[in-house]
Structures are given as C-alpha cells and as structure tokens.
Computed example of a mutant assay.
Amino acid sequence: MTRSKNLAFTTPLKGNLALCDPCDDADLHRIRDLYKFIWVREGRVQLRIDHIPLELHAGELVPLTPHHRLEIPQIDAEVLILAFDSNFYCIFGHDGEVSCSGLLFNGTSELLRLELTEERAAALGRVIDDLRAEYEVADGLREEMLRMQLKRFIILCTRFARERFAVHADREKLFDIVRRYYVLVDEHFRTRKRVQDYAGLLNRSPKTLANLFAAYGQPSPLSIIRDRVNAEARRLLLYTSKSAKEIAYLLGYEDTAAFSRFFAKMNGESITAFRRREKRE
C-alpha cells in the first residue's frame, strides 16, 4: 500500500486539522482528543472504540467525537482519518452552517455508520484532493481555505446522514428536534436524567418526542439518556483510576449504590467485574 503524505496544520490560536492516510500509532495518539471521520477506502479494518470491537468495510465511514477512544490494533486496509478540533472549526458555533451536532457527532455508544456509494465516495474524494492541494499553498489564505474544505466534507456527510434517515426538505425542522435532543443530552446528562426535562427545553411533550424518535427509527428518548450516562461511566472506568464513588458523583448520583445498580442493569455485570474483565483483555 502506498502511503500518502499526511497533513497536519495548527493555527496561531492552537486549532488543529489533521489528515492521516493511513494512520500509525503516533497518528492515533496525536488525534486522540479531536473530532474524527474514519473512512475505509479499501479492504476492511478491525477497530476498538471505547473497548468495543467494530469491523468496518470498504465504503463505510464513521464520525467520532473527542469522547470516543479509538484503537486500531492492526491496519492492513486503506483507512483515511480526517480530524479536527473546535479551535479549528467549532461545530457548535457554526451549527447553522453544517447542522452536524447531534447527528454526526454525539457522545453515545450508538455510532453512525454511513455507507458510501461510488458517487458519494467520489464527492468526498474530491474534497480530500482539494484539501491536500490547499495545504501545499503557503500563503495567508491557506488556513481559511483548509477550513472551507473541512466544512464541505462535513456538509456532505450531513447530507448523506439525512438521506439515510429519509429527511426531506419539508421535514427538516422536525428532524432538527431529534438532533437538538442529542445535543442537549450531551450537555446535560449529568444533571438531567428524565425525558420531561429535555421535552421542556425543546417545548415539546415527552409523548411527541417518543413518536418523533420512533418515526425516524431512533432509540427512545429515555434510552438515549441512559446510553449517554452509561457510555460516560464506562469511559471513566476504563480510562481513569477514579473510584465508583467518585464516578457516581461526577455523573450526578448522590447514592453510589444507585449508580452501581444502574451500571449493572445496563451492562449485565458489576462495576468491579467490568473493570477486572477489561483489564484482562
């Protein structure tokens, strides 16, 4: 496999953009805390995301947030990773432009897998080519041109995701409620664990939200909250040395026993058993 020249760009304000094609361990460490698009262009690759195995095939693309911990034990496929941070391009500050928060990027364990047709892959490939070309131009306009190419890539992926959920122009506003719900859960899951809390923030009833999520084939609003809490609990248990009591407090549980019961119900094993098993693997 021929290795393409990787791209790494840092702005004066510490914004970062990286294109790894393919990646090695040093690349993965460097982009660990960035937003990422993982695109398998040829072959298949075995990943571990938050210690959960995932196999991606050629033509599949997965977006990840900085919360997701990515591991690629062995790279024997053509895998392209486009990564960036909020200092380079803030997806929340530019939500009106790209509308990807909550759709492409959210902190739950339910990953969005996009299957790219030849036409879609070609469109993204043109953006990558333009991104590489702009990187070679060393002038004062390069930063903004690179940002524009990243924005194009994000918008295309957002369109592909909307097509997957059959979001037509006349239903964009309804689907936007689903997207905003994910954003609000990411923001408030530590302190708000009831659907009615988010329904109030969205000026909708819990029943309306449940019907809307069912119409788009999404998990129930309550399961999204629980999944987000559980995903954060697993990450804290896997990647920190914090005790169950400390994690319970961070996740908004005053009672450690209540948190332990929640974790066991969600994962089918106790916190102690989970940590012991994961350390062995």
Rank of each mutant, 00 (worst) to 15 (best):
L236V: 03
V185L: 07
D227A: 06
R179G: 00
F165E: 00
K245G: 06
I155F: 09
R162M: 13
Y239K: 02
P221I: 04
A248F: 08
N267E: 13
K207S: 13
E187W: 08
Y181D: 09
A231Q: 12
A264S: 14
D255S: 13
A210Q: 10
L156T: 09
L141W: 11
A244H: 03
E163T: 05
Y181E: 13
F259E: 07
K245L: 12
K207M: 14
A210V: 05
F160W: 08
F274A: 01
A273H: 09
V195A: 10
R152M: 11
D197F: 05
Q196H: 12
R204T: 04
M266Q: 15
V185A: 02
S270W: 07
R226W: 08
A161I: 00
L236A: 11
R204W: 06
N267F: 07
D197R: 02
R235N: 13
R276M: 14
K151L: 09
S260I: 04
R226P: 00
K193W: 12
A214Q: 11
S223W: 02
Q218T: 02
N211A: 10
L184S: 03
A210C: 06
F189I: 03
Y239E: 02
A214S: 07
R194Y: 08
Q149V: 04
D139Y: 03
A264I: 00
A248G: 15
K245N: 08
Q218D: 06
G200R: 12
L251H: 08
K207C: 01
K173V: 04
R204I: 05
D176K: 03
I225C: 09
Y239S: 01
S241N: 14
R192T: 05
G268F: 07
I247S: 06
K173H: 08
R162C: 11
Y239D: 04
T191Y: 05
R275S: 14
E246Q: 14
E232C: 04
S270V: 08
A214H: 06
N203V: 01
C157F: 02
C157W: 06
I177R: 10
F160P: 00
E187M: 12
V229I: 15
A169M: 08
R147C: 03
K242I: 00
R235E: 00
L236D: 14
G217Q: 10
A248H: 09
F189N: 03
S205D: 12
T208V: 04
R159G: 06
M145L: 14
G268K: 09
E172Q: 12
L184F: 09
S241M: 08
F160S: 00
L146M: 10
F189E: 02
E254H: 11
T191S: 12
P221S: 05
A257L: 11
I177P: 00
A258Q: 14
E278Y: 05
R261N: 01
E143G: 06
R171T: 10
L174H: 11
A214W: 04
Y249H: 12
F259G: 04
K193N: 11
R142K: 15
A257F: 07
R142M: 14
N211H: 13
R228Q: 07
Y181W: 05
L212E: 05
S260D: 02
T191Q: 13
R235F: 05
G140Y: 04
R159T: 10
R190W: 01
F160E: 02
K242G: 02
L201C: 08
A166S: 14
L238M: 07
A258L: 13
A231N: 08
S205I: 06
R226F: 07
E246L: 01
E144A: 10
G268Y: 07
R152E: 13
